[in-house]
Computed example of a mutant assay.
Amino acid sequence: MEKNILALLEKLVEFKSVSSDKKEGGKIINYVAGYLNNKNLLIKRYINNGFSSLLIYGKNHLVNKPFRILLNAHLDVVPALREAFKLKIKGDKAFGRGVYDMKGAAAAIIELFRNLSEKNKLPDDVGLTLVTDEEIGGFSGTKIFSEKKEAKTRLFLGGEPTNLKILMAHKGILKITVTHRGKSAHGSRPWDGKNANVKMASDISRFYTENPLPKREIWATTYSLNLINGGTAFNVISDHAEATFDIRRIYQDQPEKIISKIKKYFPQAEIKVKMNEPGLETDRTVPEVKKLAQILKRYNKEKDLFTKDHYATDGRFYSIKKIPAVHFGLEGGGMHQKNEWIDIKSLSLYYKILEEFIIT
């Protein structure tokens, strides 16, 4: 089984399916549709805003009835050098762009669907969505599926990296731009102008003096100032300065509270919310989640099998609709980094746990 999953993963990694490349996204979707094609599966392809996706389920599924479990995987990746799109095996690790996030989990899920459907053992109430835009927000893939009647479910189960734990929560996202206006003048005559850059620098300094960046991992709202733009030329007083915050908020800190805080430290600035996406919060007592945890407990001996993380996932589109959403993924590391990797042994273990979960 591990050999087959690795062979499929090798092929998936070869596709340079960076989110922005809609054509390559279409190619990998076509490949998977062909790989899964058999008489016992229904495979529906969608194209939304140029992004390709698939909805897959058994031939006997009633389309007007919600799935018991809807599995989800994204086949898009973040940019990388050419050599990263070739799977490399070193010892018990496999390296390549997207192996951890999340073509490795996708390969195991796809192989599971193929094997169960060919043996006519895929439960009628289990479905799968495959998307190609998760890394840039998921608005043309999972978000649209969450609004479709034929993709309704009682549990959304994604395969984001979790190191064989169950991810129950992640932070929400606020993208806020802060803009200061000034007055331009010749750089040699600062008294004739009003420097927007200086005002911005002063406000930023005050903000981080009173709200220092955390020095260790912490489950709290974080404020990352990742973009600053201002000025037009070396010798012109800047009449415009813009800063963009990437704010990852915990559930308790609602957007209104955060916006008020930004306004407090940038009182003369124009504040605009460019993105406001919810986090994910799922109760671990949900029956299907408890069932997954009970199965996982036999294979993962860690005391706490549940986890939470700071990144956002497509699960939020279902969670906001009060549909339980969790993620369960492979062991590995280096997400979005040069040496992204997975533990090869976790592929077959992951497959085995998912198989037991969906067929019992």
Rank of each mutant, 00 (worst) to 15 (best):
K175R: 13
G159L: 01
I176T: 07
L155V: 06
A185M: 08
R181L: 13
I173M: 14
K175S: 14
L174Q: 14
R181G: 04
V178G: 09
E147G: 07
N163F: 08
L157M: 06
L155R: 03
T179R: 15
N163S: 14
L167M: 14
G159H: 00
G172H: 10
I166Y: 01
G159Y: 01
L167P: 00
T179C: 07
S184T: 12
G158W: 06
I173C: 12
S184P: 08
L157I: 08
S184D: 06
K148G: 05
S184I: 04
G159D: 04
E147H: 12
L164Y: 01
K175N: 12
K165S: 06
A151L: 09
R181D: 07
L155F: 02
T153S: 13
H170I: 04
T179I: 13
T162E: 07
L155T: 04
G159C: 09
R181T: 13
L157R: 01
H180N: 08
H186K: 09
I173D: 11
L157Q: 03
R181C: 07
T179L: 09
K165W: 00
E147W: 11
F156I: 06
G187P: 00
E160C: 02
L155P: 09
K183N: 05
K152Q: 15
E147R: 11
A169S: 11
M168R: 02
K171Y: 10
K175F: 11
I166W: 00
A169L: 04
T162H: 04
P161T: 01
P161G: 04
G172I: 11
L167I: 09
H180W: 06
R154A: 11
R154V: 07
H186W: 04
S188F: 08
G182V: 01
L155C: 07
E150M: 08
A169E: 15
G158Q: 04
K171G: 07
L174H: 14
L155I: 05
L155M: 03
R154M: 11
K148I: 10
F156A: 07
L167H: 05
I176K: 13
E160W: 02
T162P: 00
K148R: 14
K183S: 07
S184M: 08
T162N: 04
I166T: 00
